[in-house]
Design a protein around this nucleic acid. Structure first.
Lengths: 190, 190, 190, 190
DNA sequence: AATGAATGAGACTTCATTCAT
DNA sequence: AATGAATGAAGTCTCATTCAT
């Protein structure tokens, strides 16, 4: 699927980090997966950690980009929130392995690099908070603490990476819709 | 705080696993923390992994025990759900480090041992599902998929371990109450 | 000969660094020499580089200590210089391997650690400069640039580590005496 | 500066070997310095080691050639020795980097190749010994061991590569002159 | 109960060199 | 002439665990 070698390596890393975790995945494992010698990997990557950082960065950036697009396009806060949830599900389920690496493994980056991801995560959270805050201002939403509200909804939607299995009865869209209803009902006025 | 050496070791492990993660914590780190030599630890533990398993087991068992007590005592589904959420917060925040180890590190157990934790987690989830199902049966709650509902609420409440800081403006109880309101409003009929 | 393990390791390192150089000596080589597993060495040392630093430090400190003792005991500058040369030879030839490590390999320390050795070398050089300066002040010695004089003599005496072989016709003491004469004749007034 | 690619590469190697040492300089470093890819270097060199050998050979040959010319031109032993010292300084200081590679790094050649340099060094030493021997025969010089005398003077003059800095108060010529005086005074009869 | 020496496997990374293009 | 992908060996170091004392 991958068109160039680096992407192939990153994809192998995503798969392995997802299956075994970052620490339990050796550089040898990744090399085996792409059919290279261990040392040859280092033509493409600088370090195992940098590989993890790049995967996590790409992942969180994808979330941010999507949500920023949503905020620009949608009109009402309610519509923004609905689309935010649906898009979030799109990514979590559409890129389940990469999302898992982001949400589960980024913690194991060294402090400096981890901070980069934490900062990006905060930016993403703030986009949600802004939506909620806007809805509260327009009286669409209830709740006096937009940040807590956002954390509740985002936590619920993030947790999906830990239980979603492709073999369920409901399609990803149906699940997303279901969560949408729950959360909107929780905060809509009236 | 710890009354015997094993508990002291477990507490040190919890602190360190919480701070650095299971893999990045060496047996030497734990030994240093309790003031023993590395070799001496093995009078009290069989392996680093077993230590993690025991911490995670104790943690998830605590969640189950509390929730079972709630189910026996409370009368209506709504009351059960409220108390479930409040008790869940009590543990997550009251034992934040241990909960973090359970939710973040148990994955790194070997397959067999991880399965034990996954089973216990499933049992805990099922207690929540039962509460929702009961509420749907009594028409207290809406929603045709109790399991999805439970996953939504539980995910939201679990995620707390990733963002809760003791220095916030709201007390743990206030946060719990806020989440309670959100989730109940999401599923209560009318 | 070594009484404890660390000394044994240091002695092995000295021998190997002397024979092959620091970079060409692997930790495995040192471990083989003392009959330990590679990993076991690290109970005694923190890193290969620190081992080199400690050897070099011990070596240069030995030179300094001896020369300080000489300066305290001897009376005239001429006597000091004679003894300085003889003691220098004593160490260079008596600890030829360690001196070789100091003079040839310390350069390969990382900048910070190399600086420590360079500083110590400067202190040693300054002891020589002081002796010359004193002799010039008392009119025992000629030469308007004590530092250059010291560098000339010290260079001559250091170079010994590069050519001395135990199988020569002259004893170390005779060689030392010969150098002493050459250098004194070079700087004595009259 | 370099007229063809090989010389450019050799010059880059000299600079880098001088700065970091032979072992710590990678072929990549050299390639970077001349603006080629690592693989491309091998159109010009056969191996990193051969490069070092050629640099060292060229360096020691330069010393020999100069000294041979001196021996042919000068008349008295004293004049030869003076010119030998001055020429030696000319090269050491005029080609400080290359001399440093010769004197510090040639040791790290493999045994066979190192022997070639050691042989050349011995030839150079013997030229000095011949001068001293001649001066002793003509009663210009004192000292019953011309080889030791030569080693003393040569060591003193070689050591210069380890301490000479271009920013000093004395010019290279003044330093050379100063050393000349010291050594001649040390061995001249009367 | 406690030590600390020792193990041995395995971790990440570097690097000189080769070779097809 | 030049590239750059690939190799494969070797490098330093870490670590969970064992065991004689």
């Amino acid at each position: 699927m991958a068109t160039n070698k680096y992407d192939e390596i990153a994809q192998a890393a995503i798969t392995l980090f997802n299956r075994k975790g970052y620490h339990a995945t050796s550089v040898q494992d990744i090399a085996d997966e792409v059919g290279l010698q261990k040392g040859s990997l280092y033509h493409y990557i600088n370090s195992k950690e940098e590989l993890l950082l790049e995967i996590a960065t790409k992942s969180i950036n994808g979330f941010c980009r999507d949500l920023e697009a949503v905020c620009e396009q949608a009109s009402s806060a309610q519509e923004k929130l609905e689309r935010a949830i649906l898009h979030h599900f799109d990514i979590v389920i559409g890129h389940l392995e990469m999302t898992t690496v982001l949400l589960r493994e980024a913690f194991f980056l060294s402090d400096d690099q981890h901070q980069l991801i934490k900062d990006a995560n905060d930016r993403y959270l703030n986009l949600w908070v802004q939506i909620i805050r806007e809805g509260v201002a327009t009286r669409e939403f209830r709740g006096e603490d937009p940040r807590l509200t956002a954390l509740s909804i985002l936590g619920s939607c993030n947790w999906v990476y830990r239980w979603y299995k492709a073999d369920g009865k409901k399609s990803p869209q149906e699940i997303a819709r279901y969560f949408c209803d729950l959360h909107l009902r929780g905060i809509l006025n009236r």
